[in-house]
Amino acid sequence: MAKRIENTGEPVQFTFDGQTVTAQSGDTVAAALTAAGIDILRSSVVSGAPRGVFCMMGTCFECLVEVDGVPNRQACQVPVTEGLTVCSQQGAPEVLEASA
């Protein structure tokens, strides 16, 4: 389990797939979700397998989420702000079917 060893910022609330998450100012969306024990952020566009944060530094693009309606944002690069609406990105099932 994730544990926050020190509180330095102000509490900030945002939602992830409708669930309210309390973070601290200064967190990125990825850090806030990790601290809240949420490890699955999206499913793979190829196989649909669940994926989560990997590198935390903007390299791997595993933590892509939809932020306030904009898809493909890197959760590890977006700072949390009060009231942010974050949604997981679910593969592309219609697309997989269409390619058969």
Binding site: M1, K3, R4, E6, T28, A31, A32, T34, A35
Partner: peptide, 11 residues
Amino acid sequence: ILLKASGVVQE
């Protein structure tokens, strides 16, 4: 990075 930026660790 989690530790430096947010003071968060995985136990």
